[in-house]
Amino acid sequence: MNFIDASLKKIAEVIKNAYVHWETAERNGFMQRLDPRLKVLFLLYCAVIISLIKKLPAQGAVAVFLLILILLSRLDAWRLYRRIAIFAFLFGFLVALPSAFNIITPGRIILHVASLSRAYRFWIYEIPQQIGITAEGSFGVAMLFLRVANSLTAALLIIHTTPFFEIIRALKVFRVPDVFIMTIILSYKYIFIFSRSVEDMYLAMKSRLAVPINRSAARDLVAGRIFFVFKKSWLRYEDTCRAMTARGFTGEIMLYHFRNFSAADAAAGVLFILAGAFFLLLQVMI
């Protein structure tokens, strides 16, 4: 894939993701009906619970709970889990796999792999005579895999059931300053406008290229496109400033208020707290 196709693919992904999230967040499912503040709190609570759980069956129970929430929210579980599986395989399994060996994680060998004539030692590194996968190391890999998968599942569950602006606005429950929240919201809008510009720019470039472009010319071309995006962003910023000033904006930011929590929100909140407590208790009981 050349640099034009690689850039186009990324930009297309930005636009596609936003539309997919917008579409799934509009469905009439369990999580979609809840208050965004509750969902943001749930996401953080879930992330903390997942990072605190130290037993594999408890992580497995969290995975089942999240799957139930995904199904109740009428999300495309197959599509979602395909993405989770790829990410968890790369970052939770492949990256961690060497740590299953006794070279990195010493312990009881459960799968013998190789034998050397003797042990070797270089500076702070040591290669034992018997090389194999240890129980401690394989536990670490399994734990990291489940933790990465569960964390991503929780994040995608919230992302796919809540409009982006509602997620950002709900950050107010963590006392994130209004100016920062407004910056994220405005920046997200700009990203869309400019992503379309960049996509058009690359498509136009691709349609005009009859022969492959050499690397040096390509690098100059990319620098020029970045310059163009900067200037376009700057013009948009000046226009936005003028428009905001014309409407009487003085720098005071007022985000509109959320509705009150409903009985369903309260019930879901209690359910989430109890579920979290159960998972923590489960690892004590096992």
Binding site: A6, T183, S187, K189, Y190, V198, R219, R225, W234, Y237
Partner: peptide, 17 residues
């Protein structure tokens, strides 16, 4: 800051050979 953040995000979209 909105402009600067969008620019920072978009820089990561530009692949170079």
């Amino acid at each position: 800051l909105g402009m600067a953040a969008a620019f920072s995000f978009l820089i990561m979209m530009f692949n170079v050979p």
